[in-house]
């Protein structure tokens, strides 16, 4: 199967879940694994972009979470889509999640939470889910994570003082943990700077780099 071949698809729904952050749902044409990505565009003349699926393996539709890039080529057009409109989507591919017996920590900032939502909705469990953001509305799918993981889900809030949130960035949270587990798998997703910082910090705290898997936005 050519990962880059784009199949015609249709929009099921589009919802703005926070300022300039949208969930786009579309027909499920193929089965997929949690953590996989698709290439997607709404017009064959616009280069497709890579998005992590945020829907679960058993969901009846596929879903992505995206950030409106004002001045960008694709996302300003995606936010104008209506149910039934044409999309072009590749076969899901990639393998972020490696089902292994080891426990997992999931660490994300911003829309980097998308693959972890897919994992959660697919029945995978993490010992800790760290989500970093600056504003309350940027903790996407917060209710779902709270319901599924309770206190294992930690919102690292770097600006506002929301009751129950950890005050600080995800790196501050990791620094605050006295004994970091070394023999588990750490999954990181977000902007490259966050991923690099967290990875360096984990390595400095004695986590073998072989236990760190990263997905970077590009």
């Amino acid at each position: 199967m050519d990962d880059q071949f784009l199949f015609s698809n249709n929009v099921i729904g589009l919802k703005e879940i926070a300022n300039e952050k949208y969930c786009l749902t579309f027909k499920k044409q193929f089965g997929y694994k949690a953590g996989q990505v698709v290439q997607l565009t709404c017009n064959r003349s616009i280069e497709p972009r890579l998005y992590s699926l945020c829907s679960g393996e058993f969901d009846q539709q596929m879903e992505i979470l995206f950030d409106l890039k004002l001045g960008g080529e694709l996302t300003p057009k995606l936010v104008e889509l209506n149910p039934g409109d044409r999309l072009y989507v590749s076969h899901p591919y990639g393998q972020f999640l490696r089902p292994t017996p080891e426990k997992m920590w999931w660490i994300a900032t911003g829309t980097g939470i998308a693959p972890f939502r897919s994992m959660m909705r697919s029945g995978y469990e993490a010992d800790k889910i760290l989500h970093g953001a600056r504003l309350e509305e940027q903790f996407y799918f917060s209710d779902e994570f709270k319901t599924a993981f309770g206190e294992k889900y930690v919102r690292c809030n770097s600006s506002t003082n929301e009751v129950g949130d950890f005050q600080g960035r995800v790196t501050n949270y990791i620094e605050s943990v006295k004994s970091l587990p070394k023999d588990i798998k750490y999954y990181l997703c977000g902007r490259s700077m966050m991923v690099v910082e967290v990875r360096d910090l984990l390595i400095a705290r004695g986590v073998p780099f072989e236990n760190i898997l990263s997905e970077i936005f590009f």
Binding site: S192, M193, V196, R199, D200, I216
Partner: peptide, 16 residues
Amino acid sequence: GCKMGCLFCMTGKQGF
């Protein structure tokens, strides 16, 4: 800078 975050590269450490 660079977005790719390769473990062995100094450029990746400055982000994009």
